[in-house]
């Protein structure tokens, strides 16, 4: 499991994410193949996702959230295990809404 440094500022990651607006849809637009992830030793998505949506589990798998997704595409681009992450955009009108970007 990767231990992330936490001394990067006074703001918690949850507070950081709370500054972005997400209009969450009930259908998940990210689907992860759990079996494929258990066989993955690198788990790039866990490190690279700017929203920290991917969390390693103790049995070597990957847990994922889809709610606070920037819809950037980093996860499927860095994923080394073909087809482990199926990714699409959330339903129209939902998902991230940027304000001052």
């Amino acid at each position: 499991m990767t231990a992330f440094r936490t001394d990067w500022g006074t703001i918690s990651f949850d507070d950081r994410m709370a500054t972005s607006e997400f209009r969450i849809h009930e259908r998940a637009h990210i689907v992860v193949d759990g079996d494929a992830c258990r066989g993955c030793s690198t788990q790039e998505c866990v490190v690279a996702c700017p929203a920290r949506l991917f969390v390693p589990t103790s049995d070597g798998g990957v847990l994922f959230n889809y709610e606070q997704c920037f819809e950037c595409g980093t996860c499927y681009l860095v994923c080394n295990t073909k087809g482990a992450i199926s990714w699409n955009y959330p339903e129209g009108g939902h998902g991230i809404v940027f304000h001052q970007t």
Partner: peptide, 19 residues
């Protein structure tokens, strides 16, 4: 992207050290 994943550095950590 590939470097970010390989170096095991989180994006927000890199911003924080830059700041």
């Amino acid at each position: 992207l590939p470097k970010l994943a390989a170096q095991k550095k989180r994006p927000e950590e890199i911003i924080a050290s830059f700041k």
